[in-house]
Computed example of a mutant assay.
Amino acid sequence: MKRVLLVDDDVELSSMLTEYLEREGMVVTAVHDGLAGVEACRVGGFDIAVLDVMMPGIDGVEVLRRIRAFSRLPVLMLTARGDEVDCVVGLELGADDYVAKPCTPRELAARLRAILRRTASDGPADVLAVGPLTMWPQERRAQWCNATLELTSTEYSLLELLVRNAGRPVSKAELSEQVLGRPLARYDRSIDVHMSSIRHKLATGDDSRAWIQTIRGLGYQFVKI
């Protein structure tokens, strides 16, 4: 059973979501302010966290910033519908995905399952190596130029998909379907923001070439040597 940390100041909504997610086989711990959310993550024991952006005091973005200082725990953000700024900022800080409120408990559960599926370590025990990049998918571990490459769960899955298809473009629609677990929506910048973060992390190595290329009209491609 997967353990979910729900951080939302709306007690009534938290209760409804908790009841639904527990019927779906998850164990939910709900806290109602940002500081409590940070401390719960510090204690640990969770498989994923759900953070509401709009909270009094320390909001969800600041909670995420503090969590990322010590943990790579998968995080799903709850944002105001149509607030693209919150979505982009959350993704840039290392959120794995977001859901716009108001959302149905069913949609939230589906997004959580999609993230949890891709963070599971029950895949093939192979090793992927292209250029200075080495990935161990079963361990969800990667090295770039022989140094540990720190990636969020979504970044890892996106990079793994590109590497498995090195030398050919992978469309944003395919990346969204296979990694985010949802169809690519119009004006959805999630994939682009994640790719920008991955590129930035790869550029910190000794080899500064553009290993991830944007193929106009087709998608993204990892360079094959």
Rank of each mutant, 00 (worst) to 15 (best):
W136T: 07
R118L: 09
P132C: 09
M135G: 05
P132K: 08
A109H: 05
L128S: 07
L128M: 11
A110Y: 04
L133E: 03
L128D: 04
L128T: 05
A125M: 05
L112S: 03
V130Q: 13
S121F: 00
A109F: 03
I115T: 14
P137R: 12
G131Y: 14
M135Y: 02
A109W: 02
D126G: 07
D122G: 10
G131D: 13
R117Q: 10
P137A: 11
V130C: 11
S121R: 12
I115Y: 06
T134R: 15
R118W: 00
A129E: 13
W136N: 03
A109D: 11
V130A: 10
L116A: 04
D126S: 07
A125W: 03
P124F: 04
T119N: 06
T119R: 04
A114D: 03
L128R: 11
A125I: 02
L128G: 04
A125P: 07
P124Y: 02
A109G: 09
A110P: 04
M135C: 06
T119Y: 01
L112I: 13
D126K: 07
W136M: 09
P137W: 12
P137D: 05
A125H: 13
G131H: 14
G131M: 13
I115P: 03
L108A: 14
S121I: 00
A114P: 05
P124L: 04
T119L: 03
R111E: 07
I115S: 06
M135W: 01
L128Q: 07
R113F: 14
L128W: 08
